[in-house]
């Protein structure tokens, strides 16, 4: 079937097969390799992107469901110059080590912060528990997200 959607503000029109995932479209067709994959079963969260502002594991999202959708990936979140507040907070708080989970983690965190989550450690941990990180032990990711919630609320 043919789908038409917006990816990072650009129009995309494609004929897609039933089995093609959003992850396939992003990485293999559009060359948006900032979105990573770690399992293809929705367990690690590395492929998280925003579909209509909601966090979605793109490995499990069929393209056929996306007609008329708006998709934002890590490339779309990154401003033309510099970094977003959340990206900068990840840099400043040492919240990235190997960096492989980071794009998915930041997309999930962006959705979480936008959802109006309170500046509460337990709420942040709960909200990001679908995204695995094997390097950091999570302290510094929580600190980065907390700082952005506080900044945006200030």
């Amino acid at each position: 079937m043919r789908i038409e959607l917006m990816v990072n503000g650009d129009p995309v029109s494609r004929l897609v097969e039933g089995s093609e995932s959003l992850l396939d479209l992003l990485r293999n067709d559009l060359g948006l390799v900032g979105t990573k994959w770690g399992c293809l079963t929705g367990d690690c969260g590395a492929c998280t992107v925003l579909v209509n502002s909601e966090p979605v594991v793109s490995c499990l999202k069929a393209c056929a469901q996306l007609d008329g959708s708006t998709v934002t990936t890590i490339e779309g979140l990154t401003p033309t110059h510099g970094l977003s507040d959340l990206q900068q907070a990840f840099v400043d708080h040492f919240a990235t080590q190997c960096g492989f989970c980071t794009p998915g983690m930041i997309m999930a965190a962006e959705a979480l912060v936008n959802s109006g989550v309170p500046a509460d450690e337990a709420a942040i941990r709960e909200g990001l528990s679908g995204n695995l990180c094997r390097c950091t032990g999570y302290n510094k990711i929580v600190d980065a997200v907390m700082s952005v919630i506080e900044q945006r609320n200030a």
Binding site: G34, T78, L83, Q87, F90, V91, F94, G99, T102, P103
Partner: peptide
């Protein structure tokens, strides 16, 4: 980290 800006931007 030196590599952090490129990691957080994918």
């Amino acid at each position: 980290k030196l590599d952090a800006p490129d990691k957080v931007s994918g």
